[in-house]
Amino acid sequence: MGQPHDLGNIIDAHPFFDGIDAELRTLLVGCAANERFEPGEFLLREGKAADKFFLIRGGTVAVEVDVPGKKPIILETMGEGEVLGWSWMVAPFMATFDARATVAVRALSFDGKCLRKKMAADPALGYAVMSRFVPVMAHRLQQTRMQLLDLYGVDAEGGKKKKKGKGD
């Protein structure tokens, strides 16, 4: 567990918290914790309570789905500076995917349960938090859609494909 003072510095330095007001900052510092995950450890488990979100400070996290009889399918990897987890603010507050550290991961975790209550009690605060998370969610959705496009495959997008034969 880090000191609140260090946590404050980390928050101040991160673009996710750009322009944050003092009240929310104090609140976030109060519900943040420094965590470390060894390779293979899970930050989130599919179907389990999603009570946290993470600001990854180092290492790589794989967001993945377990497939019986096969290796887990990695949907995307996330690294330094990225924000992981938004199920904590969407009922029923259950993680949709597994999030696994593929190497040693350092992260700040934030207590979503505590934050949820405060957001419900104080809509202005709730709006402030939401307006930081909606872009994260939108970005995630865009990336997923782009992945669906299969941008580099031969058969993708109706054949309008770049490869380095410009014609025949």
């Binding site: 031969v154 058969d155 109706g158 054949g159 309008k160 494909k161 490869k163 034969g165 410009k166 014609g167 025949d168």
Partner: peptide, 8 residues
């Protein structure tokens, strides 16, 4: 306008 796979 054909480029491998389809016409534009």
């Amino acid at each position: 306008s054909y480029i491998h796979g389809g016409a534009i």
